[in-house]
Simulated scan of single mutants.
Amino acid sequence: MILGTACALARVNGLDGLTIGVLANAVGMSKSGVFAHFGSREDLQLAVLDTTAQRFVQQVIEPAALQPAGLPQLRAIVDRWFDWIRHERNGGGCLFTAAASEFDDQPGPVRAHLARQQARWRGYLSRVIDQAVSAGELAADTDPAQLAFEITGFAMVLHHDSGLFDYTEARMRGLRAFERLITPFIPPRNAR
């Protein structure tokens, strides 16, 4: 319950805005009671990143992994990832995208942990793309790391636009951009 509330607060106020005091007030506990669970603000922030990563795996990666390896799985990942970003459902959008902006120039354990998580995610996405290449669903000269980088850019724009404008339109544009990105890499026999 405490971590769930902490994750919700971090999505709205930012990971940097999450403090032991703010969390204690939100859950109706004393600061010392919350402190006993985490030990420090930094430990709380790290626990929020880990809890959010577990939820991301459950809501994005695991359901997408039920699709056949390769392009169907990549499309499912992008679809579910773009849904994950939805601001009105998540109350603040994607914590990882927001935290990357918050901590990109703040050296320390939280930034390092976030960077490791994001590197693992980008590596996973690259491996799924590589499976599509190996299956002949994407051209042999496809650069999985570059494609993963570009897809991540679409997710970042979606996060931005869904917070400022309309999520539905932003998501539609993001999915259209993703399809336009991969279409040149799809050999004619595998085109939809």
Rank of each mutant, 00 (worst) to 15 (best):
L175K: 13
T19R: 07
R180H: 14
A6T: 01
A155P: 10
F178A: 08
R75V: 02
N25P: 00
S30W: 03
D104I: 08
E137T: 05
F103N: 03
A69E: 11
L125Y: 06
I61P: 02
A10R: 00
F103H: 08
A119L: 11
A26P: 01
H160F: 15
Q131A: 14
L66H: 13
W81L: 09
G70M: 06
S30E: 10
Q58D: 15
N90E: 12
K31F: 07
A170P: 06
T183E: 15
R122A: 10
Q59D: 14
V27H: 02
A10N: 00
P184M: 09
Q131N: 13
I151C: 04
R127W: 10
I85P: 00
A24R: 03
M156Y: 12
Y167I: 02
Q73W: 01
M29R: 15
S134L: 14
A6N: 01
D143R: 08
F38G: 01
H37P: 02
L23R: 06
H160W: 15
A170V: 04
V12A: 12
E102G: 04
A177G: 13
L114A: 07
Q131K: 11
G92R: 02
V57E: 14
E169I: 09
E88S: 11
A139Y: 05
A24G: 05
Q106E: 14
G93H: 03
P184S: 09
N190G: 01
G33R: 09
A64Q: 00
V133D: 02
R55D: 11
V12C: 04
A139L: 07
H37F: 12
L9P: 01
D43N: 13
G174P: 09
F103A: 04
D43H: 10
Q54G: 14
Q59F: 04
R171N: 11
R11E: 02
F149E: 14
N90V: 05
R171W: 06
L125E: 03
Q58S: 15
L46F: 08
L138I: 07
N25G: 15
C94E: 07
Q54T: 12
V60Y: 00
R189G: 04
D161W: 10
A65R: 14
L9W: 00
A36E: 12
T183V: 11
G14N: 04
V60F: 01
P72G: 04
G4R: 08
I20M: 11
K31E: 13
L23I: 07
L147I: 15
I186N: 06
D104W: 13
V12Q: 10
A26C: 04
E88C: 06
P184Q: 07
A47E: 09
H159T: 05
V12I: 06
R120P: 00
W84L: 02
D43S: 12
A119E: 14
T168S: 14
L158Y: 05
F82A: 06
V60D: 01
R122S: 10
L71R: 12
R192K: 13
E179L: 09
F154M: 10
P68S: 11
Q67Y: 07
